[in-house]
Simulated assay, not measured.
Amino acid sequence: MRILLVEDEISIRDVLKSYLLKEGWDVLTSGDGVDALNKTQKIKVDLVILDLMIPKLSGEEVCREIRKTSNVPILIVSSKSREEDMIKGLNIGADDYITKPFRIQEVLARINALQRRVNMFTQKAKPIMSFNRRSLVINFESKEVFVDDNLVRLTLTEFKLLDALLKKPGKVLSREDLSYHVQGYRYIGDGRTMDAHIKNLRKKIEKDPKNPIYIITRVGAGYQFNVEADRVHVG
């Protein structure tokens, strides 16, 4: 796996790179946003570790630009530690968020969880499914989602979340359940991280995210995929 490590603090960058290399990963590094974005456009990478407070172009802008053309997993590692900052990071397309100071083993665990999710999608193929008279079409093999025949770009986390809900249509999944299936670990906190991912997914697949027909909230319990959404297997 090739990782792009975007961090302007040399000491942090060197330590992280050393551990990543020991894990057997190919590591590219960048110290500013412009260089990082150029690398993602010219070189195929499997994961981006992204600091937000970097020169020339902010990490937020780098994340937004990457998401315009790629669903490569993005792990934000930032000193911005407020919950609002974390939610913002997820809203602009990050798959996961770790605050500084961090433990190296936690970073490695998050990377491994992301890698397992990528490998799982690569290894298994599923039929194409459509809903609501093909207004929503999901191709599980190509990992593509179409809304009214228009391709919408989901992050790895968003696609995994949709996959988890579709595995048990009609069943209410708690935030803890979804975090385990999607992230590979159970969240610690009030669940706003998973809520943010649900919100982002609804914006992309629901015609009216405030009145969803696919992903339904069950107050105090969690979320479920609506089995009455006219599902049809087409492949």
Rank of each mutant, 00 (worst) to 15 (best):
R133I: 00
L136R: 03
L136M: 12
V137D: 11
V137R: 15
V137M: 15
I138D: 09
N139H: 15
N139K: 13
F140Y: 15
S142Y: 11
K143F: 08
K143E: 08
E144M: 10
F146W: 11
F146V: 02
V147R: 03
V147F: 00
D148G: 03
D148F: 01
N150D: 15
L151P: 08
V152H: 02
R153H: 13
T155A: 04
L156N: 04
T157M: 00
T157W: 04
T157Y: 11
E158R: 05
F159Y: 14
K160E: 08
K160S: 13
L161W: 06
L161Y: 07
L161S: 06
L162E: 09
D163C: 04
L165G: 10
L165R: 06
L166Q: 05
K168Y: 12
G170M: 10
K171C: 09
L173C: 14
R175H: 12
R175T: 09
D177G: 06
L178K: 05
L178E: 06
S179Q: 03
Y180F: 11
Y180C: 03
H181R: 14
H181I: 12
H181T: 09
H181C: 10
G184W: 02
Y185W: 05
R186K: 13
G189D: 10
D190C: 03
D190K: 11
R192L: 12
